[in-house]
Design a protein around this nucleic acid. Structure first.
Length: 864
RNA sequence: GGGCGUGUAGCUCAGGUGGUUAGAGCGUUACGUUGACAUCGUAAAGGUCGCAGGUUCGAGUCCUGCCACGCCCACCA
């Protein structure tokens, strides 16, 4: 399609029109299509992060995604076929939460499907959430994510990200589910995944297991309670300080350090748990800290990870009293595992706790302990760190449940080696990965008791008594994927055998989002043409540093487990956008300054300029002024371009594609030498992943061009003998549009397209080769000459400014002192110097000196 | 407690392998508007380069220690 009707520059810069023209043109001409005919060596593969679709795009997205786009554009201009997919991460908890709030609904998997249910947006009110079936809930998720994704795409197109949109995927789509389930099936075959019933970190709000990587510590208020325990069969007693008295009925044992003289005598005896009169063994344990509290502590089911670890090696029975809803369970207390010396007392006390939340139970039990006399003094307030699910608001509990785990602990060494093989930018980010990998102490729990996500391709046989056999799961065959075990029956069974004796049940859990996100390279390849020469490792993975322990870590794990390779050669870690007060930018503030508002105000190119100014891995404060600065640059590009085009249009060279041969003037060739070195510097900076540096050198050369070179050649370009000047301006424009193209794809395309000398073979600036020193072969001269001319011009300007005179004030005479070896060189530029300085003919005199100097400037009178 | 990073002009940031008067943009001030410029240009003021030692002829740059801030990890009865 034709880019523009008349191919003339607009009178004024109008970002919206230019952006519209460009996006339409790129779309129509398929400028960014991935070329599968290129070899793998000639392909640059990007493992694009699929943004989480749960609400609106944040300016931080624009920031980091634009930085990747700049790299992609440079690689494309370096002759690579760029595989630059885009996907939306729409499965998982964030989406569920948003859908619940947006439609005011909640999923109840026990309800039947209602085909007439239509989700509608409801403003937040007090009305209870409408319960809907699992299928209705998933449909609501799909509806809302679909709408959100449309908006995301609009913004990403508007900001000029050069994805191949035909490769677009969503993580909840059947094909992505297939890839994810295939991964599970493969891991099962390789014995890298296992179903385990064990105490797991559990979020009571979301009623789901969580993985180590999703856990964070928060400083919260707590209280030490000093509890008196009697020692069985003696008059002795001791005091334990605990923050979790509500776990008293779940107490398994009492431990103290083996060398602790205070308690050594008790080892082997039993302590009596207050209120419940349960005898529990007093045992030595090396992890007990003599300095902390009273030096003696209780092990419960389960206070923390240390309790779990100790319990595992103790062989003692489990005493689970906290249910999956975070409340004290309804159990027959006083028998079995909870054997007691006084059943009636234990039952009576426990009955008062049943059904309470842990917080309520704590208050209740303190009351009971106080009555009982076991509580010594009053609870003492402390601040301590407690583990929370990163998206949760209540502390995690350890609840025993059946979950699928990927066995990563045995892969630690390989993981560390793989991390070293990958090039981290900036390098120090590797330490985060290393820290995390070395500190890993749990297998990766991938089951989630949620609804909107990838189902496990798993069923369990049911025996003739109606009990599921979890030891012999039925795994779906690969060619059946994707499957939903809650809808599809396993091979060899029929649907009417579901939940029946001698039948089967489906695994009702879904996978952790990361179990799917960790396969982004594999998913992207799955959505590419089947005969494309794509393979791991990809070239780059761009991402932020907060998800090194999740996304980066898990992706490396999956690539190792499946393909036995690293997933990418390089990982580029972007920084965060911080509020001006240097806190991480909050979503609430993001609503005020939305990306679209900023784009409309400053233009896409200007917003991209802002993103390009920041270096990788460095957190920067949000400063809108940088966008204004970017806009100034873009407007300047527009105006300078328009000016050059006007000067060229008057020349007979205007339509000559082989104009370069006319660059013969010394000053012009000197300028081209400067331009060539800038191009080379930009190229080198890009090769070093330092796009900010590439922009910096390009930008400063461009302002040099506008302030100096353009003024220096202006008069000559209007004169009779103007071919060299005009050709030089043409080459300059051709060069700058290419140098700026990765940063400002819109204004550069606009200028590129409306050049009168554009040939039919020239499709888009974004398909051009990025300039290098070699592009200027034979066109460059003595760069020094340019520097000297600029220095002389600067002195003349300074003299005029000092005298408060306009710059067009004529100069009667001036003296240039200069070294002998540059004398002849500078004199070749005398005409240009006279032009730009408004110097009277013959006004310049020369004298030898050590260094260049301009003296005795005599200003004339400006004739009106 | 362990690790990583940051600390340069009022603000936001640049400053390979140590080398002349430490840079940019914004902001401030003064002046000007040259044949493109919803402006633009020319200039000025503004810095003990976190602090203290050390290496060196020479340190913003290398070494040691300290301080402040941020982040990551671990512990947390």
């Amino acid at each position: 399609m034709a880019y523009k009707e008349n191919n003339l520059p607009d009178n004024q810069y109008n970002s919206e029109e230019i952006e519209k023209r460009c996006t339409d043109f790129w779309e129509a001409e398929n400028i960014y299509a991935y070329d599968k005919n290129a070899s793998r060596e000639n392909t640059f593969c990007i493992d694009t992060p699929p943004p989480t679709v749960s609400g609106s795009l944040h300016i931080g997205h624009i920031f980091s995604f634009t930085q990747t786009d700049i790299t992609a554009r440079f690689q494309r201009m370096s002759g690579k076929s760029v595989f630059y997919p885009i996907g939306w991460d729409d499965n998982g908890l964030p989406t569920e939460r948003r859908v619940q709030n947006y439609y005011n609904i909640a999923c109840n998997p026990n309800l039947p499907y209602d085909p007439d249910f239509k989700p509608e947006h409801k403003e937040k009110d007090e009305s209870p959430r409408k319960e809907v079936s699992r299928k209705n809930f998933i449909e609501a998720c799909e509806k809302l994510t679909g709408e959100d994704e449309g908006i995301f795409e609009q913004v990403f197109r508007r900001i000029g990200h050069s994805y191949d949109w035909s490769l677009k995927y969503t993580t909840i789509s059947p094909d992505a589910i297939k890839v994810s389930q295939k991964s599970f099936v493969d891991l099962y075959a390789k014995n890298k995944v296992q179903l385990v019933e064990a105490p797991t970190m559990w979020d009571v709000t979301f009623k789901s297991a969580v993985a180590q990587a999703e856990v964070e510590d928060r400083e919260v208020e707590g209280f030490f309670h000093d509890l008196k325990f009697k020692v069985e069969g003696s008059d002795e007693s001791f005091v334990i300080s605990t923050t979790r008295p509500e776990l008293l009925p779940a107490c398994l044992a009492i431990v103290a350090h083996p060398d602790d003289e205070r308690y050594k005598k008790f080892f082997g005896k039993n302590a009596i748990v207050p209120l419940f009169d349960i005898p529990v063994p007093i045992m030595p344990a090396a992890h007990a800290d003599m300095e902390k509290g009273t030096g003696i502590m209780m092990i419960c089911t389960f206070g923390d990870a240390a309790d779990v670890a100790w319990w595992k090696q103790s062989g003692l029975p489990i005493k689970q009293i906290i249910g999956q809803d975070g409340r004290i369970m309804d159990i027959e207390y006083g028998a079995g595992a909870f054997e007691t010396l006084d059943e009636a007392k234990a039952k009576a006390n426990f009955a008062q706790l049943k059904g309470l939340t842990t917080k309520q139970a704590k208050a209740k039990i303190v009351e009971l302990l106080r009555e009982d006399g076991a509580l010594q003094g009053e609870p003492r307030r402390i601040m301590h760190a407690v583990k929370f699910y990163e998206k949760g608001s209540l502390p995690l509990e350890f609840v025993s449940s059946r979950q699928w785990f990927i066995k990563l602990l045995e892969e630690k060494d390989r993981m560390l080696a793989a991390g070293k093989e990958i090039h981290w930018v900036p390098e120090h980010m590797y330490h985060r990965y290393e820290d995390w990998t070395e500190g890993l102490n749990q297998e990766w729990c991938i089951s989630r008791q949620r609804f909107f996500g990838v189902p496990f391709p798993v069923w369990y046989p049911v025996d003739n008594a109606g009990n599921p056999d979890y030891t012999n799961p039925i795994i779906a065959a690969e060619d059946r994927l994707p499957v939903d075990p809650m809808i599809d029956a396993p091979a060899g069974y029929t649907e009417d055998q579901r939940n029946q004796p001698n039948g089967f049940i489906g695994d009702c859990d879904i996978m952790d989002t990361w179990a799917t996100s960790s396969l982004t390279p594999q998913i992207a390849m799955h959505f590419a043409p089947k005969d494309a020469p794509l393979s791991l490792p990809f070239d780059i993975r761009p991402q932020a540093h907060d998800i090194i322990r999740t996304w980066a870590f898990y992706t490396i794990a999956k690539a190792l487990l499946h393909e036995n390779t690293i997933p990418w050669k390089e990982i580029l870690i972007s920084g965060f956008i911080l509020d001006p007060d240097r806190k991480k930018m909050s979503k609430s503030k993001g609503n005020v300054i939305t990306p679209l508002n900023l784009i409309e105000k400053h233009s896409s190119d200007a917003v991209r300029y802002w993103a390009a100014k920041a270096r990788l891995g460095i957190d920067t404060a949000f400063e809108e002024q940088i966008m204004s600065q970017g806009r100034k640059l873009v407007v300047k590009l527009f105006n300078a371009g328009k000016f050059v085009l006007a000067m060229v249009a008057a020349s007979e060279l205007a339509t000559e594609s082989n104009y370069k041969a006319h660059i013969v003037n010394g000053v012009d060739k000197a300028w081209q030498a400067k331009l060539a070195s800038t191009a080379e510097a930009a190229r080198k900076a890009f090769a070093n992943n330092d796009y900010a540096q590439a922009l910096e050198v390009t930008e400063s050369r461009f302002w040099d061009f506008c302030d100096n070179y353009l003024e220096i050649v202006k008069k000559r370009a209007y004169s009779e003998d103007n071919k060299s000047a005009v050709a030089s301006l043409m080459l300059t424009l051709d060069t700058f549009v290419k140098l700026f193209a990765p940063f400002c794809p819109f204004i550069t395309e606009e200028l590129y397209q409306i050049r009168p000398w554009k040939s039919a073979a020239e499709i888009s600036v974004h398909k051009e080769s990025f300039p290098s020193e070699a592009s200027f072969s034979g066109l460059t001269g003595e760069a020094k000459l340019y520097d000297m001319v600029v220095a002389v011009v600067a002195e003349i300007r300074k003299a005029k400014t000092a005298a408060n005179k306009p710059l067009k004030t004529p100069v009667e005479s001036l003296e240039i002192l200069l070294p002998a070896d540059t004398d002849a060189l500078l004199k070749t530029a005398q005409g240009d110097i006279e032009n730009v300085g408004q110097i009277n003919a013959g006004g310049i005199t020369y004298a030898p000196a050590e260094a260049l100097e301009v003296k005795n400037i005599v200003l004339g009178e400006l004739v009106k």
